[in-house]
């Protein structure tokens, strides 16, 4: 029971099948669940194929059009070649965030290595596609035009570090928001149980306050879960846009 009240316990990684570094852990299980839910959601949502969409179908279409709109807005129609990647990223992050809000579940995106790996997928796509498409012209990304020669190395160094900071910023933002949100929720939920357990009836009455707070924070976390997925997607689109149009 001590573990249940520990706000850190929910981030623990436990091997379910097998042993060692590559064991199938709860984290892997929730990744699998995320993939299954996304696929199921989209397949069931699109199974009816009605002209006037039902609830699930309009949700599926909404997610499609939302991501498509974001891609078109940030990188134009040429950005649509990255649409499958961006859509997968958005759905994965969104579903992982939302699944994590259900009590007693594990949040895949609360582990920095996961968010960092996802952002590295974006950055590697940018770098590889950028060099493949534009060759050394891609390096113009780091050389702003109209900068005098003598401070160019300094500016270029800053630009390179700024570029390197992108995956960090991308992954830390998502990770930190998920982590902080879940710790806060856990702490407030812990207050409720602690107060009602230790002080009896009075504690139960007092526990209503943090309970209300916990409910409010849960609502806020739903917003954050969606917004973080959106921010992640939006920034991924903007970075991918750099691969499409580096400098001039």
């Amino acid at each position: 029971m001590a573990g249940a009240l520990d706000p850190i316990h929910q981030f623990q990684i436990v091997p379910l099948i097998g042993e060692g570094a590559f064991a199938f852990t709860n984290s892997a299980a929730y990744m699998a669940l995320t993939v299954v839910l996304i696929t199921g959601f989209l397949m069931i949502g699109t199974s009816a194929r009605t002209l006037v969409p039902g609830r699930l179908q309009s949700l599926a279409e909404m997610s499609y059009e939302f991501v498509a709109g974001t891609v078109r807005q940030t990188s134009g129609d040429s950005g649509m070649k990255f649409f499958p990647l961006v859509f997968s990223l958005f759905m994965f992050v969104l579903f992982a965030n939302l699944i994590g809000l259900i009590p007693y579940t594990f949040t895949v995106t609360s582990h920095i290595i996961v968010t960092f790996a996802l952002s590295m997928v974006v950055m590697l796509t940018v770098v590889i596609y950028g060099f493949a498409k534009h060759g050394t012209h891609f390096l113009h990304l780091f050389v702003p035009s109209g900068v005098p020669g003598y401070i160019l190395p300094l500016v270029a160094a800053i630009e390179v570090i700024s570029f390197l900071s992108r995956p960090i910023s991308l992954s830390v933002r998502l990770f930190a928001n998920m982590l902080a949100g879940h710790i806060t929720l856990k702490v407030f939920a812990g207050f409720v149980t602690m107060l009602s357990a230790s002080l009896g009836g009075v504690g139960l009455a007092l526990g209503v306050l943090p309970l209300i707070l916990a409910i409010g924070i849960t609502a806020l976390e739903f917003l954050v879960a969606f917004l973080q997925a959106y921010v992640f997607t939006l920034l991924a689109c903007m970075y991918l846009n750099d691969a499409l149009h580096p400098g001039h």
């Binding site: 974001t70 700024s162 910023s169 830390v172 933002r173 959106y230 921010v231």
Partner: peptide, 23 residues
């Protein structure tokens, strides 16, 4: 998307600076 991009903007700003220093 525009309606939520204001909040998204706020979330963006929160980690950009730290990420630069960390990088």
């Amino acid at each position: 998307g525009d309606a939520s991009s204001g909040l998204a903007q706020a979330f963006r700003l929160s980690s950009e600076f730290v990420a630069g220093v960390v990088a």
